[in-house]
């Protein structure tokens, strides 16, 4: 694992060596804050909380996390630098972890940069900092789970567009499974028993994220996100080792 720091550093700084980081951060913040204002009616709700900000995170991540994750392996494969990387004295696991952690750190930075929203509610009212903290924690853990999926799909192809589209699709399904409209459809229209609907929605990002937004930090939810990311990275190593 000693080889992770140099690889992490190169990957993380790589975002800032190109316009990717700046374009991503600006557009992500505009979109997420815009959703909170215009769709979430941030001010109209008259509540000093960030719920109207975080409720859109699962949906925004469908597009934004694959935008970060698609290049992880596809770009290395296309440009041939994967040959350079894997002839350095590193193990596949080290490389996979280093790249994942770098991209995850970048996503966490993007999420954390919404802090003026927290300052705003603190200025306007008296928010519950515990809830805000757990929302940020949940949001970052969820980003890791999305990113695991994107890293895996990226390892399959040297084409970033394919990697992006497949990641978006998988992430979309993972959100959809827990969306109330979808679960109502399963339970009401298809009259599936409620235990089955619960099982289906238990595989969704939104189901496990909702607790964090309410201020409930449940180990089960954290384990879900981390184990999903871990499982994807395990497959990622296998794919690269073929």
């Amino acid at each position: 694992m000693s080889q992770i720091p140099p690889l992490f550093k190169r990957e993380f700084l790589g975002y800032f060596r190109s316009p990717v980081a700046y374009v991503f951060l600006i557009v992500f913040l505009m979109a997420s804050v815009g959703c909170a204002f215009f769709l979430g009616r941030f001010f109209d709700s008259n509540i000093a909380s960030l719920e109207s900000y975080f409720q859109f995170s699962p949906w925004l991540f469908i597009l934004f996390v694959p935008a970060v994750g698609m290049r992880l392996w596809s770009e290395e494969k296309r440009s041939g630098t994967i040959e350079l990387l894997f002839t350095l004295p590193v193990t596949t696991l080290e490389a996979v972890l280093a790249k994942f952690l770098a991209a995850w750190a970048f996503l966490c930075l993007a999420v954390a940069l919404s802090f003026p929203m927290a300052l705003t509610v603190a200025y306007l009212g008296d928010p519950d900092w515990g809830v805000i903290g757990s929302s940020y924690l949940g949001c970052m853990l969820m980003a890791g789970a999305y990113l695991g999926i994107c890293s895996l799909t990226s390892a399959f192809t040297k084409n970033q567009v394919i990697s992006f589209v497949i990641s978006v699709f998988i992430c979309f399904v993972m959100v959809l499974l827990g969306w109330s409209v979808f679960t109502d459809f399963l339970g009401g229209y298809l009259t599936l028993p409620s235990w089955l609907v619960d099982i289906v929605s238990n595989f969704s990002f939104t189901t496990h994220f909702s607790g964090f937004v309410k201020g409930i930090v449940d180990a089960k939810d954290a384990v879900f996100f981390l184990s999903l990311a871990g499982f994807c990275l395990f497959l990622n190593v296998l794919v690269l080792d073929r």
């Binding site: 140099p6 690889l7 550093k9 190169r10 790589g14 060596r17 630098t81 350095l88 004295p89 590193v90």
Partner: peptide, 19 residues
């Protein structure tokens, strides 16, 4: 092949660290 967005010095620095 090399990482195109890095400068020569950054790139060789990365290789040195990894080595």
């Amino acid at each position: 092949p090399a990482y195109p967005e890095m400068t020569v010095e950054e790139f060789l620095g990365f290789i040195a660290e990894a080595r």
